[in-house]
Design a protein around this nucleic acid. Structure first.
Lengths: 367, 367
DNA sequence: TTAAGCTATTGAAACGTATTAATAAAGCGT
DNA sequence: ACGCTTTATTAATACGTTTCAATAGCTTAA
């Protein structure tokens, strides 16, 4: 059943810009070769007098000429297109990264084809194939919450397209990377808690299979050793393995609850990431423990949630838009290098995260 | 300065699948026309015996033949590509929508080109042009927080490409739409509060220029009239105009603070959207008002933040993934209709939102 | 005066495919 | 033995560019 107003005709024809270079040629009185040379400002254009150029440009404008991207690509191999693969878009961590990528690509007049792998191997392969079929000039991979999978790496190597990976570094191979200095970040976090007077600190570590887990823990251990701070093994728990980045909320909740039920006393809690911290905060709240008065909580990432919750979450910010931008810059340089027949090397950039102090942490002696 | 390990050679050649249909022809012993017919299962394929087909398929596989997308597009005009325009990706509201779009496109073997307009008119126009140049077969627009701008509509009409808009309905013209029943949703929200016994309810309405604002308010007024519930004008405030969807957090905070400072008493607060509600909650918290014990808060949208904050936010859920899916289905149908030379009509779907009861609302007499 | 070198322009080919129209063989009913 | 239809295959063309090699007029150096 339709209401009258709901139906509107849409023209069926589809001849967007049926005007070709030949028509511009005819209109301007020159050959299509000349038109092409002028409009692209090709090397030969230097022999062409202004008057001719003007006439051609005017004709093109008059007819509303727009070069056919596909014919052009067929000829010169360039697509001005970049494939972006995300491992799980629902992870709030990757949105600002995507923003950074989009923005930087826009400035470079590239267009992103976005794919979400849903953490599934088959989907990764299918998408990779589709992107390569579309001759993307580069690949940017947002490897959030990536399971270690060596074959993925292999597929990428074979692709023969400049590739940058965000959030994970592949030591060997030709894939560039943009990561954050996890060790430094974790160090900054615990230093913050320490400086507030906290000594009994609980830790929710990341899952084993996540590459960020180890360096963050290392940063903590190093600090503890340096300051002679004792880390009580009873206060250290691990997130379980999972392919869902949002699962750490429930896990954070449950683990914190368990810590509390075991009667462990701690004045601060450091979570593997912000989502985990959010879960922990709810557990504390439900147990009647006030944040930050009775327990400080610090996260990692600075996803958008963190500034919006109450109390606002103190955390270690990853410069996500910058990471996206940097990845684009890397592959953009690769692309032009290849254009000039130059060789290209994988580069690995490590950005420094930053402590963002908000409301969820406070001096220990407040309590 | 490089460390040795940081540099890895990347092959410069770029001949992904230099194997053409002609090579398959040669390998199999047939003409390229035959190969094309077989591989595409074109109508003429019905005259071709299995043995021939097999030989051709085997040859194609052996050589790893992959048809050149651009040559193919040049020939038959199809790109299997859809343009997706978001007005502001940082708005948490649109991520699940994007997910829905991506997922449905994937099933239909389409690839999305993602563009973020940043709420800027010039950017909209530039991107639109780029997408049309790339002959996207359809356009999906996520019109979150869209300023009313009639010209945008005009540009879309001219584009001559099936278009679906999510979050906003354009009555006239050929653009399809997928929206949520705002009036129904707002009605459900206030009914929820009412049924909990709340009678003095504060409202933070949306900004004037947002199309969702009016119907939501209408839903509230209708309910109030029906139940003879008095709405105190002193308890009704409006979000200011802004092009930034996240600005409503600060606005929600400030407006709530103002209400409290004016000494207005209310037992519940209904916010225009979740982000606003988050701001309101913080203001209440800072003023020492407990949620939900002393004041219930309800939002609208059900962005991911809402389930992660503590107390978890009661809200009206928009079925965002479904909206994305539905938009894709609409344009997919349009595309195949056009393929069959059929006429196409704009359709307007309105989905019903759902009350999600969580922790931020409670009975009024608890306090 | 001639060869050489610019300047200005263009015809033709190539990128890789899908389709149309044509060719040719084979089956078949009369 | 004849046309007619069906089966099997292909040559040729067009999609819209860009670029190479060629043409031709004109200037300049020797």
């Amino acid at each position: 059943m339709f209401r009258e107003a709901d139906i509107t005709d849409v023209s069926v024809k589809r001849q967007r810009s049926a005007v070709t270079i030949r028509e511009v040629a005819k209109e301007s009185g020159f050959a299509s070769a000349t038109v092409s040379i002028v409009l692209n400002n090709a090397p030969l254009a230097r022999y062409i007098p202004e008057t001719t150029k003007n006439r051609i440009v005017r004709a093109a404008k008059k007819l509303g000429y727009r070069p056919n991207v596909f014919a052009r690509t067929l000829r010169n191999q360039r697509t001005h297109t970049v494939g972006v693969m995300v491992f799980d878009m629902t992870d709030p961590y990757c949105i600002p990264i995507l923003r950074g990528i989009e923005n930087t690509l826009y400035e470079a007049s590239f267009l992103p084809i976005l794919t979400d792998v849903h953490n599934e191997r088959s989907r990764f392969e299918r998408y990779l194939e589709m992107l390569l079929d579309r001759r993307v000039e580069a690949l940017i991979i947002v490897a959030n919450w990536l399971f270690v999978d060596v074959n993925v790496l292999g597929d990428l190597e074979k692709s023969n397209v400049p590739t940058a990976m965000i959030g994970r570094e592949l030591k060997a191979g030709s894939v560039s990377s943009v990561t954050v200095d996890n060790e430094f970040g974790a160090n900054a976090a615990i230093e913050h808690l320490y400086s507030l007077g906290h000594r009994r600190i609980a830790f929710i570590r990341g899952p084993r299979h996540i590459t960020d887990t180890a360096p963050r823990w290392k940063g903590i251990r190093n600090f503890a050793t340096a300051k002679n701070l004792e880390i009580d093994p009873n206060l250290v728990v691990d997130l379980p393995e999972s392919s869902d980045p949002l699962s750490s909320f429930d896990a954070g909740y449950t683990l914190t609850q368990k810590l509390l039920q075991q009667g462990q006393s701690f004045t601060a809690l450091m979570a593997f990431d912000d989502v985990t911290a959010l879960g922990a905060i709810r557990a504390l709240h439900h147990a009647g423990v006030k944040v930050p008065e009775q327990c400080s909580v610090i996260g990692f990432d600075d996803i958008s949630h963190s500034s919006f919750i109450t109390p606002a979450l103190t955390t270690i910010r990853q410069p996500m838009p910058d990471m996206g931008q940097m990845a684009v810059n890397i592959v953009a340089e690769n692309i032009s290098a290849i254009q000039q027949q130059e060789r290209v090397a994988a580069v690995h950039r490590k950005l420094v995260p930053q402590l963002i102090t908000r409301e969820s942490t406070g001096k220990v002696n407040l309590q």
